[in-house]
Nucleic acid binder design. Structure first.
Lengths: 351, 351
DNA sequence: CTGTTAGCGCATTCAC
DNA sequence: GTGAATGCGCTAACAG
């Protein structure tokens, strides 16, 4: 195994000093054309890989990174993202990172707007954004672009921005996957209910729309579009879902219920309280506490998970790469794996 | 955010020198009871976390670690473990690790025995073992124990040994999961074929036995033990599976085929060449190239994957922790998550 | 047994 | 523009 090449070695080979090589590697400071040419020649010949430990240790600057994601109740999706971020901060505790949380209310545009404004005023070294409002995020990112502050997205992306990296899930693929599962588990003549959470005063979320697209696309491919029965329910007043009873009574061939967000446990609860005389399989998204319990008790059959912890973790990791090493990531837009959870493999995903 | 506590700080607080603190932290060298007590008192009060970068950088010793796992053809299970090991070595390139591969033939006891003997003679700093032969591994580990050489297991464990860590899958849970899936996807009156690969001159592998146990256990729990139809096939001569044809003809209610190892693609190929007049769903283990292709082409419905890359990666990682920091791992016996792969989420797992 | 000291590879500062 | 010098936190060798 060849010995690692050091800055000093490169300097010697190029007949300059270590300082000059450093200036070229990180393009900071002025360097004469002659030196630059010589060093770049050497760099082409040898495979220089910086020693990240040495780099980290002699890097004394403190970074401020701001995390602007929606607020959440314990055990919810955004909580997992936060967990991922925090475990990354712990892992990289040796690097001097000051981290400021700027949560905003994802159901209140004004909250989002004012949060983003304060962040922009603060001029941090980098930002992690969990976007929900499109135009607000766009404006925000333009400000960051102007100030040359790098930012990364978690959960989803906003078009027209220039993030350093994104860590998201392919929502359409999620929808396709959900359809794939139901197609696999249900008898040929069964119908599938697509239960959508009713949102007051807002359109359905971007994620949900994309998932439905994928869901329908897959079923169209296998020639089963006519099996879909779409219906709405109220996630906030679960007991008051009389329409759901009617719907299920009127559609006795519905053998599967797909919920394209994390509210499956509500339907599972409803069915537990108002049992039918035949089996119905439920699938939904995200390892929230409610869903996990329902999965354990077999009231939910499948859970699709988009690795939120990992999204948070990787977001921090990539920003550290950006700030410390200014190395362009190889994968700028990383799509998380979509985990399928059933009761039997659930225990191995906790942690 | 509180500033990191350094060895120097602890030394000052305890009224000793940095050298003494270092000796206590890593219990090397002799320390008086008095000093030890004082330092340990301080350590209890402050939350010391070593700066891994500083540690890594001043660590100049070269480690030799031996990797003793079965040989494999490209794209096979053990190849993924190797990939994981290599990507860990790349990630930790700054640490001076010399790594020697000692592959052995998992179908030849003598190969295993002689390989293990050479490794023991070599006296490396640490060993990664992919065990297949029980008593040979046991003897080997005893030798390592005597020489005080740490070792970790990947894939599976051997009882009676004292590994530093293990990275395996709960094979019984794998079997349960497989049963769970078939239970979910098949109509109530369907039967499930349990196809076992015939091995010449040896008993079925330990993994397979445990998986079958789990498989039967689950079906027993849901009262469907009588749905299992067990049968053997020859993985080495796939075209010569006349008995398979007979079996499937005689058991027309078999709607699912469970294969408890990675040879599902062979059955899928067989069914492609000898089509039946009804649908049969196939599920098996591991993301080998053959299985991945069959999954893409919908000839296999489900693949269960035990994260072999991660096993390899974590094995290296834990050994580095052991050798460098002598920190006991919090999780010594780590069970990998069991991923369920279908055609639609497959793309997001390549990498 | 203990304290002191010389690096590890890199970032940064300061003379030249 | 450039090179030399200093220090980051830790390990290891050495002198007492």
């Amino acid at each position: 195994m060849a010995k690692q090449v050091r800055i000093k070695d490169i300097a010697q080979m190029a007949g300059v000093s270590a300082g000059t090589v450093d200036r070229i590697l990180h393009n900071r400071g002025k360097v004469s054309e002659k030196s630059r040419a010589k060093v770049e020649q050497v760099l082409k010949e040898v495979d220089y890989k910086m020693n990240i430990h040495a780099s980290a240790i002699s890097f004394r600057k403190e970074f401020t990174i701001v995390i602007a994601i929606p607020t959440f109740s314990p055990g919810e999706y955004w909580g997992s993202i936060r967990n991922g971020i925090e475990s990354a901060l712990k892992e990289y505790a040796d690097i001097n990172i000051r981290c400021i949380w700027f949560p905003y209310n994802q159901f209140d545009v004004y909250s989002c707007r004012s949060t983003f404004e304060s962040v922009a005023d603060l001029s941090p070294d980098a930002v992690i954004i969990g976007p929900t409002f499109m135009s607000e995020t766009l404006t925000f990112c333009q400000q960051l672009d102007e100030k040359n502050i790098p930012y990364v997205f978690v959960d989803s992306t906003i078009d027209g921005t220039h993030p350093w990296a994104t860590f998201t899930t392919d929502q359409k693929a999620c929808g396709r996957l959900m359809a794939n599962l139901f197609h696999a588990i249900l008898p040929d003549d069964a119908e599938i209910a697509l239960l959508m959470a009713r949102r007051i005063g807002t359109e359905p979320s971007h994620n949900t729309v994309e998932r439905e697209e994928g869901f329908r696309e897959y079923l169209a491919e296998v020639g089963k579009t006519d099996r879909i029965r779409k219906e709405f329910f109220s996630p906030l007043t679960p007991d008051d879902n009389e329409s759901l009873s009617t719907f299920l009574r009127d559609n006795p061939r519905v053998k599967g219920i797909a919920i394209l967000n994390s509210r499956g446990y509500i339907i599972a609860k409803y069915l537990q309280d108002n049992p039918l005389n035949h089996d119905i399989r439920i699938a939904c998204f995200d390892m929230t506490v409610g869903n996990v319990r329902a999965l354990q008790e077999r009231r939910i059959s499948f859970l699709l998970c988009q690795n939120p912890e990992r999204q948070g973790f990787e977001a921090v990791r990539s920003l550290i790469n950006c700030l410390l090493y200014r190395q362009p990531e190889k994968v700028l837009h990383q799509l998380m794996p979509i985990d399928i959870l059933v009761r039997e493999n659930l225990p191995y995903y906790k942690q």
